[in-house]
Design a protein around this nucleic acid. Structure first.
Lengths: 335, 335
DNA sequence: AATCATACTGCAAACGTGTGCGCTTGCGCC
DNA sequence: GGCGCAAGCGCACACGTTTGCAGTATGATT
């Protein structure tokens, strides 16, 4: 095990430099010897030692990917895109879960640095302001997904959350709804804020005053959304439609509505956000705002690769979200 | 950028060997110098060069993880477990999607080999008989998840699918069902076969003859399951309960039933398999067989780490699946 | 005073690869 | 026959570590 170019050199009766060049298709070595060497390498089961190579080329063909948790349908779709286009260009990815714990984030950055990854891609709802500096003085390009933030070496790609909130709300308005609630995420979550801004903008454009009583706060997961919705209902608030921060929130909301004997969409319409794979199979299939997760992954990796190739004209990207109408929304009942 | 131990050595007025030892807490260097060196390393922003280290230690502290696709709630949970326990022991993981395409599988193995990973973990419904040999002559320990297969360096961890099928069926039998259907996956899928074997065993133990007419074939995804179920119904087959190969199949099955105006569980009970995170939020919440995916990930990584530490007593593991009763099953209606 | 053990520290090789530079060889040309 | 040129190849260094071995003090022992 472990045949090196030196072994091949010995077998071929040349120097290891020649082997190195032959395998790299250098024109500096005669075609005949090149073929002979390649043949030999094949027979001897040679596999290049990427680490040794990296040591001298100062490139590892590896990028680090930091996510909060891979067990989230949203991020796993993105990672699929990342990995696939990375692989297509000969890059390999090192995956790190941060669990949103500072300790793990730190460990991840440290590990990626030691392994000398060529670049880093981060998907995190809230990137620690604490550890962005750490990443920066690492001196390697960084692409942020869904988290615009600026700095040296830092580029970002994301969706226009404000626009998304607007589209969702406009859809409901166009169906004839006027009392539309919003189930948010904690206000330190930038994307939730942006979606709510879009929601307010759409309302105002339609001449409807924003009513804070129609807003409740979840945490992006079903259980909290169920509570938030029940809380809303118990306060005697009766919207005819609910726009949810994300699909998981919508799932919790629908559950609360059903429990209360309220039909979806007959009594109340619901709109989600993200279009995670499962929601088309819910009952009713969920109307939602689609984020092109896979594409975002592909684009983020493309962006990083361009940066690694020294492109100077790399610009931040924002993707337009789109509306996917299914069966959780309909016109409000006549009262 | 790029301070090495030589730089530190120069600054400290010692040789680089001493620096190396000091940073490794070797007792061979005087406490005072050790502290001074560490201090210096800190100040100079030193980060060890893992590649150079690996070149001499012949260990990369990296393991390769090959999955069919990370965008599957089942595998992403496993990967979470893998990554987390790996990280806890100072290991980093390289993630490769194979998409079940031979071309990508090959590329993955090649890349992992060149990067000299210490070990490999594979999660794939059907590991290519073609590429297992490739992995083997790589000469590195391999852990297979949910795919018992034997070979040199190969260990495996999985769940007892037969037992799972049995448990699911027994649950339905105990509720009083006697006409129980099974929506399978193609018969080349080992796990589907095993679950069906468990299903048959339970039926026979209850004195009920196996009826091939009650079996239909899906492909593990909702759409095919919907078709399979509709096909079943159109043939005039009327089971009072349906056991599904997995949760995605169950989702498709329930959709078909609802479309046909059949209520779940009032008219027909449904049992899934896997317990992916979403199914507790379905309507009705799904009764299913739980696979401890996260734990499987943790255990697989543990196993690999033990192998890497030279443990000789490593044995294949099989995990007992458990029944999770929710609301998609109930006693059959009196006829 | 010579020997010796102890406690550090440095030298140098090794891991496997890429690459600038110089050396040889063969050939054509004047 | 001398010269130049191009093609093809090897030498030697570099990348940043770890580690066996040898070396040098220092102080203690005989």
């Amino acid at each position: 095990m472990g045949v090196s170019i030196k072994d091949i050199a010995r077998a071929a009766g040349v120097s290891h430099s020649t082997v190195s060049r032959a395998l790299a298709d250098s024109p500096l070595v005669k075609e005949e010897t090149r073929e002979r060497i390649k043949q030999l390498a094949q027979e001897m089961g040679y596999s290049p030692h990427a680490l040794a190579r990296s040591l001298v080329t100062r490139r590892t063909q590896t990028v680090g990917v930091v996510v909060t948790t891979i067990a989230d349908p949203f991020v796993s779709e993105i990672v699929r895109g990342l990995e696939e286009t990375g692989q297509n260009h000969g890059y390999t990815i090192i995956l790190c879960n941060s669990n949103a714990e500072p300790r793990r984030e730190l460990a991840a950055v440290k590990a990626l640095r030691e392994k000398r990854v060529d670049g880093i891609i981060v998907t995190a709802s809230r990137i620690g302001d604490l550890y962005l500096p750490l990443l920066e003085d690492f001196g390697v390009p960084i692409v942020l997904i869904n988290n615009q933030q600026t700095g040296k070496y830092v580029y970002s790609i994301g969706t226009d959350d404000l626009r998304g909130g607007q589209i969702a709300t406009e859809h409901l308005l166009s169906l004839g709804h006027t009392r539309i609630a919003y189930i948010a995420s904690p206000n330190n979550v930038r994307s939730s804020q942006a979606r709510m801004d879009g929601y307010r903008a759409a309302l105002e454009a339609a001449g409807i005053a924003f009513d804070p009583a129609l807003v409740a706060e979840g945490d992006g997961r079903p259980a909290a959304a169920t509570h938030a919705t029940e809380h809303l209902l118990s306060r005697g608030v009766r919207p005819t439609a609910i726009f949810c921060y994300n699909d998981m929130t919508a799932i919790g909301t629908i559950r609360a509505l059903k429990k209360a004997g309220i039909r979806v969409p007959d009594d109340v319409s619901v709109v989600g956000y993200d279009d995670i794979p499962i929601v088309e199979y819910l009952d009713p299939p969920l109307t939602t705002i689609r984020q092109r997760k896979y594409d975002m992954g592909c684009m983020a990796m493309d962006m990083l690769l361009r940066l690694l190739n020294g492109a100077a004209d790399v610009q931040d990207v924002t993707i337009e979200p789109t509306l996917v109408v299914r069966e959780s929304t309909s016109a409000p009942r006549r009262v």
